[in-house]
Simulated scan of single mutants.
Amino acid sequence: MTWSSDKIIFPILESSLLELADDAFQRRVWLGYSKTEMSSMTEATAGLFDDSNLDWALEKQQVVFSPDIDNELRKLGKKLSRSLTLEEKVGLEAVLDSAEWKEIQNTAGRILSEINKLR
């Protein structure tokens, strides 16, 4: 890992990627079926990019984790942005049922696994 990766808050990054990869959690919490847990697609996305400082690190155009992982994170950010816009139009459940969302879940899990290999 490089200099910019030490600026990233890993517990937030890890938690956000785990949440974005976890279909059962999303359906239970994001759809409002849990009485004790609260979160949303917006919060998980903000956690991943804003709260963890990942957005800042990726904007520097320097390698954060590896060129491949960084590229996947940028692509994931674009897909999440599209999904957030789509959520407003068709609703959260429709987004969670989409093929693109399944791809987002798989990508988040794969990225987390690859980052953990570097640590």
Score class of each variant (00 low, 15 high):
117 K>N: 08
24 A>G: 06
73 L>W: 03
102 K>Y: 11
8 I>R: 01
90 V>A: 08
95 V>S: 00
22 D>T: 04
15 S>C: 07
55 D>V: 02
8 I>M: 04
100 E>L: 13
111 I>T: 03
52 S>M: 11
31 L>V: 14
22 D>P: 01
27 R>H: 09
14 E>M: 09
94 A>S: 14
11 P>I: 11
28 R>G: 00
87 E>V: 04
83 S>P: 01
76 L>V: 09
56 W>F: 12
90 V>P: 03
15 S>E: 13
57 A>V: 01
45 T>V: 10
93 E>P: 04
46 A>D: 08
18 L>T: 11
119 R>F: 15
88 E>I: 15
49 F>Y: 10
12 I>N: 01
50 D>R: 10
49 F>T: 02
24 A>D: 12
100 E>V: 14
6 D>K: 12
105 Q>G: 08
110 R>E: 07
62 Q>M: 11
39 S>I: 02
63 V>M: 12
10 F>I: 13
56 W>D: 09
62 Q>T: 12
11 P>K: 05
38 M>N: 15
89 K>W: 08
30 W>F: 12
55 D>M: 07
38 M>L: 15
103 E>Q: 15
58 L>Y: 01
4 S>F: 01
88 E>P: 08
75 K>H: 02
59 E>N: 13
15 S>W: 00
41 M>Y: 01
50 D>A: 12
76 L>S: 01
104 I>L: 00
6 D>Y: 11
43 E>A: 14
103 E>S: 15
17 L>R: 04
71 N>W: 10
59 E>L: 12
62 Q>C: 08
